[in-house]
Design a protein around this nucleic acid. Structure first.
Length: 355
DNA sequence: TAGGCCATCTGGTCCT
DNA sequence: AGGACCAGATGGCCTA
């Protein structure tokens, strides 16, 4: 790829350099008419057109002509001013500037390539975090934050060996994310954050991990929602604060425990507000709201989008790998996500969630 | 129009 | 010497 890029870029570079040299040769001619000697070191601080001090420093690959010219200059300058120590600054001849220019352009091309590679890696990361949309990409910073939260969440699950409450899971994922991203992720998980704000921060927003298994299983949570005493017909929402946040969760991780301290400064960003489950799932009869329509993002938590318990797994598409059934209801996520292999931990998790 | 996000350029530093 | 990496600057695009 690099070679291809250079093969594309280099002709341009050479052409530009040639143009530039042509221009500067004319300029140099004019200069030479008025200035018999080239600029000294101090004068280089005043940048030449299209050049800089660094460029002049970078241009160390000199030729004999340049050296000869340089000595001439030194002789003439040696009269009044004391000689300066240190490496001699070489004047910018047209040839040197040309080389410098080419080198700079090559460096720019490399930098572009590097950033493109970085962006590709970020795109790959976007595809493995629990919220992916081709049309509405997470920003770079949000992708990294979500990935970090995802890793922490998976680690918690492995550490506890318990199913996470879906709300807790979402909260972990959304920790420190911006509100739009929180909405996006929640939408990905078929959760609605509409009620977040009304419920927000009454407990100081400290993030607690539950100490007991949760009644809402990721796959069956839709049914759980409908049968839950917290389900409020009409509002389409379950108050998950009352649902999963009782007192005493703090005791789940006694001081000195192995649980990460989500309230520590290391856990950057603001805390996500409490989550309310949305009634806007596949079982809902009415037209999806605008919000819901906007939230047709692909997701790892694909089981939530199906009307039956799915064997798609909340943490990845290994269902496809293992020949698991995929409903046509499953969002386009699978087109994009099915290609990656999962590391053993995912298998563990998948098995875990199949139990 | 301000703010967020992004791509690109650039110069500095470190490493091979 | 040259490449990789990094951070700052800048300008464009988009959205609220």
């Amino acid at each position: 790829m690099l070679s291809r890029l250079f093969s594309e870029v280099l002709p341009d570079v050479q052409r530009l350099a040639a143009d530039w040299v042509e221009d500067n040769e004319n300029e140099d001619k004019d200069k030479d008419d008025h200035e018999p000697c080239h600029l000294g070191e101090d004068d280089l601080d005043e940048p030449l057109e299209g050049s800089s001090r660094a460029e002049s420093e970078m241009a160390g690959d000199d030729d004999e002509d340049d050296d000869a010219e340089e000595e001439e200059c030194e002789d003439e300058n040696s009269g009044d001013k004391p000689k300066k120590r240190g490496p001699k600054k070489r004047k910018m001849t047209a040839a040197r500037m040309e080389r410098s220019k080419v080198r700079r352009m090559k460096a720019n091309a490399r930098e572009r390539t590097r950033m493109h590679d970085l962006n590709s890696a970020l795109d790959n990361l976007r595809k493995v975090v629990p919220c992916y949309s081709k049309t509405q990409k997470l920003s770079k910073i949000e992708t990294l934050r979500l990935a970090k939260n995802y890793i922490l969440a998976l680690g918690e699950i492995l550490r506890n060996g318990k199913r996470p409450d879906v709300v807790t899971y979402v909260q972990m994922l959304c920790k420190g994310l911006s509100q739009p991203t929180t909405n996006l992720v929640a939408g990905c998980l078929q959760l609605n954050t509409r009620n977040f704000l009304t419920e927000q921060c009454t407990d100081g927003a400290r993030f607690h991990m539950p100490s007991s298994p949760f009644s809402v299983h990721p796959y069956s949570y839709r049914c759980s929602r409908l049968s839950s005493p917290h389900y409020q017909p009409g509002s389409g929402a379950i108050n998950l604060r009352s649902h999963s946040y009782g007192s005493g969760y703090e005791a789940a991780y006694p001081p000195g425990g192995t649980s990460p301290d989500y309230s520590s400064p290391d856990y950057e960003g603001q805390h996500s507000p409490p989550v309310c489950l949305n009634g806007g799932l596949s079982g809902r009869q009415q037209e999806p709201s605008e919000t819901d329509r906007n939230y047709h993002y692909s997701m790892h938590y694909s089981g939530l989008a199906t009307s039956r318990p799915s064997h798609s797994l909340p943490f990845g598409p290994s269902g496809a790998r293992s020949g698991g059934a995929h409903s046509e209801n499953i969002p386009p996520f699978h087109d994009v996500h099915l290609h990656h292999d999962r590391a053993p931990p995912y298998e563990d998790l998948n098995a875990f969630f199949h139990n």
